[in-house]
Simulated assay, not measured.
Amino acid sequence: MRPHRTEQSALLPHLQTVTGPLPHHAVTGPVLAHEHLVLDLDRAGDRAAVLDAERHGPAVVTELTQLREEYGLGLVVELTCRGMGRDAPALARVSRAAGVPVVAATGWYYEPFHTPDVVGSSVEHLTGVLVREVTDGIAGTDVRPGVIGEVGSHGEQPSEPEVRVLRAAARAAVTTGLSVATHAHLGRGGAAQLDVLTREGLPPERISIGHQDLLDDPRVHRELAASGAYVAFDTVGKEGYQSDATRLRLLLALLEAGHADRALLSCDVSRHGYLRTEGGQGYGHLFTGFLPALRSAGADDDLLDLLLRRNPLRFLTGGAEPPPGPHAPLPAETTP
Rank of each mutant, 00 (worst) to 15 (best):
A192I: 10
L64Q: 02
T175Y: 00
T246Y: 00
R93M: 06
L22C: 14
A49K: 10
L251Y: 08
P329T: 07
I209Y: 04
L303I: 10
V165F: 07
R68Q: 05
H272E: 14
R188D: 11
V163P: 03
V174Y: 02
T288D: 03
S9N: 06
R309N: 13
V100W: 04
T62Y: 03
P145D: 04
L37Y: 08
H25M: 02
I138T: 12
G177E: 02
Q8S: 07
V100Q: 12
I207Q: 00
A184H: 13
F113C: 02
E160R: 10
H285N: 14
T65I: 01
G289H: 06
H25G: 03
C267N: 15
S159G: 05
L255E: 14
L286W: 09
L304P: 06
Q212I: 03
Q212F: 04
G99C: 02
R96G: 14
A139E: 14
T176C: 00
C81G: 15
E35K: 14
H24M: 13
A10R: 09
V174P: 08
V60Y: 06
S179V: 13
S243R: 10
Y283N: 11
L73F: 03
T277P: 09
V31M: 00
E223D: 13
T115Y: 00
A104C: 10
A257M: 08
T17N: 04
H24Y: 12
L251K: 09
L308T: 14
R144I: 04
G280D: 09
E35S: 07
G190M: 02
P324Y: 00
W108F: 14
A299P: 05
L41F: 12
A245W: 00
R132K: 15
A328G: 00
F290H: 14
S270R: 07
E160I: 02
E35Q: 06
S227F: 00
L79T: 12
H125F: 06
V18T: 06
Q242Y: 01
L186Q: 14
V163S: 09
A225L: 07
H183G: 06
E63M: 01
P23R: 01
G83Y: 05
V103T: 13
L75R: 02
T182R: 03
P13M: 11
P30T: 14
P112D: 10
R167V: 02
S296A: 13
L254S: 12
V61D: 08
L251P: 09
S270F: 11
A232M: 13
T288C: 00
R96K: 14
I148N: 10
E69T: 11
Y274R: 15
T288F: 02
Y110S: 01
I138G: 03
G29D: 08
R96L: 13
L178H: 11
E35M: 01
G201H: 04
T198D: 05
R171Q: 08
V77H: 07
H154M: 10
A53K: 15
G120P: 01
L75K: 09
T335H: 13
Q193Y: 08
G137E: 12
H24P: 15
E35N: 12
A328P: 08
L215W: 08
P158Y: 01
P112C: 09
V134A: 10
Y71A: 08
V61W: 06
E200D: 11
T141V: 04
D46Y: 03
Y241C: 03
H154G: 00
A192R: 09
V18F: 06
G280F: 01
R132Y: 04
V180D: 09
R144G: 07
S153K: 11
T198L: 01
G189A: 09
L75P: 03
G57I: 15
L330S: 12
G318H: 09
L37V: 15
D117Q: 11
